[in-house]
Design a protein around this nucleic acid. Structure first.
Length: 260
DNA sequence: AAGAACACCAACCGCCGTTAC
DNA sequence: GGTAACGGCGGTTGGTGTTCT
């Protein structure tokens, strides 16, 4: 068959999402080029990966950043600069893209505010005010508020952390435990209300029949649990822990379409 | 009510590091 | 060791929804 001429671009359709989720369930989220080919999606591997990482990944949170998250982003950005993926790793459920977008819009706004503020020196220097104070008084080091910092590579490039060891240390600087406790508490409340809702109109229902544990409702743990666990996984090894159930289930129902 | 301005977010592009051959 | 392919990352753009005038 000769396809593959024009790879599709632009927004993903629901059908494509489903297809992608199925094949990621089957083959894991690493071999993107392979998945792109095998799935029959006329997309590049990159495109598939992006879609998965930024939108379809079951562990993703949606919606506004919590004040804790915002604080964390600011803090980590002050340490690492525009290392979005690195920062994202410290915010489970948030993607580098999301954080990047967040930073751009909010910091740009901040920069503009400050520009104006410079003419009136007594202006509220750092009351971080997307929509005036929705972020519960996150304060930002002056140096970062300047417009230039939107593009620079690390505010304190010199101080910039180097190496993973120091990364670990830095992460603790901000009394991470405290932050996470708060976040956990908040989320516990929320998730207990909407377990399995998929949140924000996500269209997971369709895929759940394929990818969720065989009998989601009968499962002692909600799908969210799997999702969250998955999000934290770094290795393919970990994924294998849960993949078999998906594979069995999926293959038995949809394996007919596969030639591999 | 309509248009402008702004905010948000999904997706693409290009570069770079890693891996496989 | 060289090279091609791939995956990941950061920067950027464009579309859409929301708020403001």
């Amino acid at each position: 068959m000769m396809m593959k001429e024009d790879t599709r671009k632009g927004p993903w359709t629901e059908q494509e999402d489903l297809q992608l989720m199925c094949f990621v369930g089957l083959f894991g989220d690493r071999r993107w080029d392979f998945i792109a080919k095998v799935s029959g999606l006329n997309r590049t591997g990159k495109s598939c990966r992006l879609r998965w990482v930024n939108y379809l990944h079951p562990g993703l949170k949606r919606g506004r950043m919590t004040p804790q998250e915002e604080r964390l982003v600011l803090e980590l950005h002050s340490q690492w600069g525009n290392r979005w993926s690195r920062i994202a790793r410290r915010l489970p459920g948030r993607t580098d893209n999301e954080i990047k977008n967040y930073w751009r819009t909010h910091m740009r706004k901040k920069a503009q505010e400050r520009k104006r503020g410079l003419s009136s020196p007594s202006s509220s220097s750092s009351s971080f005010s997307p929509a005036q104070g929705s972020t519960s008084g996150v304060s930002l080091p002056e140096s970062q508020i300047m417009e230039g910092s939107l593009h620079d590579k690390g505010v304190n490039g010199d101080l910039a952390v180097s190496g993973d060891q120091s990364e670990e240390e830095v992460a603790k600087v901000y009394s991470m435990d405290q932050i996470w406790k708060e976040v956990a508490l908040m989320e516990e409340d929320v998730s207990s209300k909407k377990v399995y809702e998929g949140g924000e109109g996500r269209k997971e229902d369709g895929m759940c029949s394929l990818l969720s544990p065989p009998t989601p409702m009968a499962s002692p743990l909600p799908w969210n649990y799997y999702s969250d666990a998955l999000w934290r996984m770094d290795d393919q090894e970990d994924i294998k822990m849960w993949q078999p159930t998906i594979n069995d289930h999926f293959v038995s129902n949809y394996g007919h379409g596969l030639e591999y």
